[in-house]
Design a protein around this nucleic acid. Structure first.
Lengths: 244, 244
DNA sequence: TCGTAGTTACGTACAGCGTACGTAGTGAGG
DNA sequence: CCTCACTACGTACGCTGTACGTAACTACGA
């Protein structure tokens, strides 16, 4: 019933976790690339040209093989994304926790932010990808180790980790979105800001949004995204901290 | 220098906030549709077929006009998305706050969750879209009104609103991702879960992740996503609450 | 009153995408 | 040794966003 197609080849017609499939089965000519080769090529392209540059054709070209050959390694493009996320997840440093879960989780969060700033396409892939890749498991275990000193069930620990990761992804995602948008648009940042600022100012000036108007009066200095990030983290951790 | 092309028509070659452009300028034949018509058509398609169904061709067909006619109203597809987000943002009820910012923000969050469950494509559009559409401004002003009883600067209020919205988007996004993924995949949910569970169980059984293994031992009941959402919100608000 | 300029409408076309399918060649297992 | 699972990859299909050109329409300035 399921044997009508080639049994092992990764054609997309049966559920599959890519990590459960062995890289090499023995039969046939030996594959020209490893999964790591493919992931690295895709990451290289995404780092240089953004996520839009990651097409099956481009990755294949980067590897120097035919487009369709990629499908021998990766049944669907979604799996290529999973490979990419796993590859950069391997960059997480897995240090020995200091024993203070609050400080340790803060450190994890800041390192994750740095990772995402290094690979700006990562936040966009964090939500859709949910497979537990090898490096994701290692990262999760590391977070749990940081929480050894946290008094609570594993359920609560998972909720803490999910919350911190969610906040990091959201904040860095926003941080990057503004930067990337500016870089992608065919006109200058000044033009963009001028047009949007003029529109927003005009709207607020109508008097329909009195509190927004008051907020504009109050705000003076430019916002420090790093400080905003730090405050957000502190508050989230406060929400889990029974001692405060 | 910028007058080489048609001055007013929304061809994408100069920065522009779609909301600043008047729907009708006077000259030429009167437009066959309003922006609301277009937004509604797109929302209808997205609700029925998901965000992938929203292509310029499909929306045009739903409206009963040629594909390229859409570009008279919407210079780029991104603007169509902005129209969609604004349209459903109009569904936010703007009630009179009770005066307890914590309770009021909780209510806002739950209503936003309901809105997103009604329009499952919304979380996916929340991050990329950052324009201050009319209904987004109304929503923001409403949140600020809820925070009248909150002691803090407008800067802090904005951070609170951003945090709550971020948490809602993230959580509902995850909630929906699992549901949508199951619906989109060509095999059954049981098959999917069996395959992924077997893989995950195998990994944990290797002993490489002792805390993950312990967590699996502990967990018993199925997780109630609504309760997880509620707890996350409470904790986030705790982080902003000086009285706790 | 009449041109004309600024619009609307839309067909055609292009480059790019993911990927189904078919075929040819390779090499280990029964 | 034969067979069969695998690798490799060219071709092709249906889909996408959208640049461009043309024709019809209408409000405004002269």
């Amino acid at each position: 019933m399921a044997g009508l197609t080639t049994p092992m080849a990764g054609r997309a017609d049966v559920p599959e976790v890519i990590w459960a499939r062995p890289e090499r089965t023995g039969r046939g000519p030996r594959p020209a690339f490893t999964r790591a080769d493919i992931a690295d090529a895709a990451v290289r392209i995404a780092d240089a040209q953004g996520l839009d540059g990651v097409s099956m054709r481009h990755v294949a070209a980067e590897l120097g093989c035919g487009t369709m050959s990629l499908y021998n390694y990766v049944p669907r493009k979604e799996d290529l994304y999973e490979l990419m996320v796993d590859a950069v997840s391997g960059e997480h440093e897995l240090w020995e926790p200091a024993g203070d879960w609050r400080a340790d989780m803060l450190r994890v969060a800041h390192e994750t932010r740095a990772l995402m700033l290094r690979h700006p396409w990562l936040p966009a892939l964090m939500s859709p990808v949910y497979g537990f890749s090898p490096n994701a498991l290692r990262y999760l275990e590391h977070c749990l180790t940081c929480l050894d000193s946290f008094e609570g069930t594993y359920g609560t620990k998972f909720e803490l980790i999910a919350m911190v990761n969610g906040v990091v992804t959201t904040y860095v995602g926003n941080e990057l979105a503004t930067v990337e948008r500016v870089r992608a648009l065919p006109w200058s940042e000044e033009q963009e800001n001028a047009v949007r600022g003029a529109y927003l100012g005009g709207q607020v000036a109508t008097g329909a949004y009195p509190r927004m108007a008051a907020a504009f009066m109050e705000d003076a200095g430019p916002i420090d995204l790093g400080a905003v990030f730090q405050r957000a983290l502190e508050r989230v951790l406060d929400g889990f901290d029974p001692s405060r």
